[in-house]
Every structure is written in structure tokens, then in C-alpha cells.
Design a protein around this nucleic acid. Sequence first.
DNA 1: ATCGCTTTTGACAATCATTATCAATAAGCC
DNA 2: GGCTTATTGATAATGATTGTCAAAAGCGAT
Lengths: 132, 132
Amino acid sequence: MKRNTWQRDAVRAALDTQLGFVSAQNLHSSLRTTGSHIGLATVYRALSDLASEGEADSLQSPEGESLYRACSSGHHHHLICRSCGLAVEVEADDVEVWAKKVASLHGFSQAEHVVDVFGYCSSCVPAVKESA
Amino acid sequence: MKRNTWQRDAVRAALDTQLGFVSAQNLHSSLRTTGSHIGLATVYRALSDLASEGEADSLQSPEGESLYRACSSGHHHHLICRSCGLAVEVEADDVEVWAKKVASLHGFSQAEHVVDVFGYCSSCVPAVKESA
DNA sequence: ATCGCTTTTGACAATCATTATCAATAAGCC
DNA sequence: GGCTTATTGATAATGATTGTCAAAAGCGAT
């Protein structure tokens, strides 16, 4: 049976306070900073659980870390700021349709897709010339 | 100055023989199997170089490994078989448009996107019931 | 073809995120 | 209050990737 522990609640709560995606390591640090004595492995477990229960979204950063974020339920995608980590949930009906079409066109089944847009949010526009 | 070494060529060649995405580790094994004495670190370096020169595509597997594949130049996305690794390059004009629109709508600049579809190709359809 | 300067290699150590281990602890149920 | 068992947490283990650095090539000039 699944039990309710304060650790699990703490992780959920900590995740809620975050505006963007966080790594398990970072979330653990945050929790420690706020005085919690929660263990690192527990944070990993809690995040992993939350993600599989649909209470959190997870994605891989370009560096290969797993990042998590509290999310509204349902299928959606993200627009993520490379600088501050701010994440905006976006609808992508067009993309859903496209993904299904492409998959079936090539005989693929059980298609899932990874769709995320990375950029700099209006507060973080870096002082970089238009070079690319 | 950048030098031409047989190692670099070997990695390029090995990558060309692959139908789908491979990890650096796997590619290294393959090379060893074919008799090459190339070092692991060198394979990592070569792949990383190829990727930044645009001669290879790279993406993160759901497990967090970096996967590489020789690719045609230009921007495109992939339809990847979870079982055999087969990767099909697909156009995604609709998605390009959508990504730009969403980014500008939220004030994001320098937007890049990650769009990949994972599924099972027709040869790999697993004997799994429609449970999800 | 050789010399010399530099880049590249490769074996191995180091790093870093994540997972496994397992005894101690604490939930939920009686 | 106890009992049973899931959960915790400190730490070890794992596994991919990167750093290190002496030895081994590349490439241009001679």
C-alpha cells in the first residue's frame, strides 16, 4: 500500500514553489536550505513517483539531467527559458495531429512525442547579436 | 588547426553504417569489433565534433544517454523506433511554424525546439495489448 | 624526406547524476 | 498500544561522460 509521508508532501510542496524545471539535486538543496532533513534518494524517489502519477512533468535537459516540474494534468508541452528556467505550458494541437500523422504514415505504432521549445524569455534576452 | 586522423574518419564511417541512433559507447564497441583500436574518449570527442559541425544529429534518449546519428544537413526531426533504434528523418514544417508562433507569442527569442516522435516501427510492433 | 611545432590520441582517473542496498524508522490498521 | 510492512536515508555501486597528460601522429616549412 502507498503511504503518506511528510517527505512526499515536502517534495510536492517544493515543486509547487518552483516556476520552472528543477533537477532532483537542486530540489534537494532547496529543501535542505529550508531546514528539511530529507534525504537525496528520497527526493529522487518522490519525483519519480510524482512523474509517473502525472503530478509532475519531466524532461531531459540538454546536459542529460532529468528535470521536473509540477504541472497541470493533461497532455501539454513547454516553452522553456534557457537562462532562468521559466517554463510556460503550451497547447500544441497542431503538433499532436502532425505527430500522429507522421507516425502512422511510417507504420509506427504507440507513438509518443517529445516537443519542447527552448529560448530566452523577455526578461532574459541576452546581449547577443543576431549571429545565428 | 583541425587535423585529419584515421580515427575521425573511422567514427564518421561507422556512424554512416548505422541505421538509427547509437550511443558513443555502442559505436566504440562496434569499432572495436571491426578491429579498430580506437579509444573510447576519442569516439566521444569525434562524435561531439561531428555534432557541432552539423555532420551528425544528437539527442538524449529517455534514459539520459546521448545518441548520435549521421544525418542529412538541414533542419529536420526524427521518428525513432524504441525497439530497434531505426530513425526516419521527417519534415515538420507545421511544427516549425507552430514553434515560432508560440515563442514569439510569449516573448521568447532565439527559440530552438526539440521535436522527436518515439514509437514502434512496423517490424517491431510488440505483442502488447492496447492498454494505454 | 625530415624537422619541429601542435594537435590529437588513449589509458586511466575523476566527476556527476542516478540507482541499489539494507538496517532502522514510521504509516496505517487491528 | 502493537504489528506488519512500506519508506526512509546514509552510503556504496553503477555507468556515462569528461579531464589529464605523456606519447604519438599530422601538417607546413625546410
